[in-house]
Nucleic acid binder design. Sequence first.
RNA 1: GGAGAGGUGGCAGAGUGGCCGAAUGCACUGGUCUUGAAAACCAGCGUCCCGCAAGGGACCGGGAGUUCGAAUCUCCCCCUCUCCGCCA
Length: 426
Amino acid sequence: MLDLQFICENAELVSENNRNRGVDVDVARVVELRGQRGELQQHGDALRGEQKTVSKQTGQAKSQAEREPLIARGKELRELVATAEEQLAAVQCELDDLVSQIPNMSHPDAPVGKIDKENIEVRRVGEIPVFNFKPLDHVELAEKHDLIDFEGGARVAGSGFYFLKNEAVFLEMALIQFAMNKLRGEGFTIMSTPDLARQDVLHGTGYNPRGEETQIYSIAGTDLSLIATAEIPLGGLLKDQIVELEKLPLKYAGVSHCFRTEAGAAGKASRGIYRVHQFSKVEIFGFTAPNLEASNAFHAEIVRIEEEIFQALRIPYRVVDTCTGDLGGPAYRKYDLEAWMPGRGDAGEFGEVTSASNCTDYQARRLGVRTRIPDKKGTQFVHTLNGTAVAISRALVAIFENYQRADGTIGIPEVLQKWVGAEQIG
RNA sequence: GGAGAGGUGGCAGAGUGGCCGAAUGCACUGGUCUUGAAAACCAGCGUCCCGCAAGGGACCGGGAGUUCGAAUCUCCCCCUCUCCGCCA
């Protein structure tokens, strides 16, 4: 959520940003509603002020005769206040609805574009493997080595679910171990998070469980939903808290299951475990001081760590600067890592494996995470950032496909071998 | 899941219908005193909304209700603690 005052004072700028992001919100209407809200609020405040005075006088009145006209006026005021509050609530409701649709502002250097094709490749790292045989994709490899049971997953929970089997299980745990150790070494507090979250936490982090095209599974009869990422519980961790400035930045790494309905993704359905309803992920989340120097620095740190993880796994990747139309609501700037996946497309393609977003104060404003700055009155919203350390399903695709060998075996990345307890599969 | 006790400012904790945005203590900030510190004393010290400001308003877990008036009474919900049951 953007600051309402900022929106109204920079209506043209906000509208332009909306256009760049492919979002259509009537900003002029927001300005109009804000004016109405101010008037209604002052009107209501005045009525409540009188109500307060009258009720106080009623309490101090000495006789019944003195009291009666005051009580009568009080009854009138109760009606008037109720009406005023209804009007205010209606305006506030429309205002909230519009404001919540306005995306964050964008970094001035973020590429302007509508779709992911317009993202800009920043750099490539690692050697794309050349095979002297026809490489298999991860589904074929998994079948050959009995690593994933898709039929069993479908029987239990439907299409899009799967069982990991054998070395794939150890690989999952090894990737989590590896990422968590790395992050702890970088000074992060490591967490294992709830896999469910309340409605207000979902909303605060920018996820909408009720929308038509929601990615979120909801638990019937409760206000809980399955989380789509540990970003949700980690963001909610400090909901409505005031954090001391000296404690920032707060750096967390959380492992969780992630659940996604993938509604609307039917057309882009892909083979195997690239796009699934459930996977495990180690997520990075940070709260920084409320200034761009602090959050941009932490953003760079997240990207550095993500790259170091994929470098350590020896998987070739490229870094992509996400264009405005592909940023989503909360991000101010976003970098994705795309790993080389030899089994994808006709002759291999890059596929997204991580993303790193600076959400500035957009999430914090909704979540109510604030800090105090000396010499500034009141509180300021902190900046929040999130990034993927490792999404297991996507990482497995990249590992299987890049590490396959002519003899049919699959190598295991050296840094994971001590946890997997083997050097290769097969 | 059952029974009970609770949820008040940064923390502790009083407050059972108007004099309460809220006693008191601790913490914190400034000052006096002191060579300095401590102690003592004095003063200040919540968040949010509207407003250029002066100022006004909201907030005692959340929501609805009763009342001229609710931290205080009623109902629903959430959370915490204790005990019992169940259970990884």
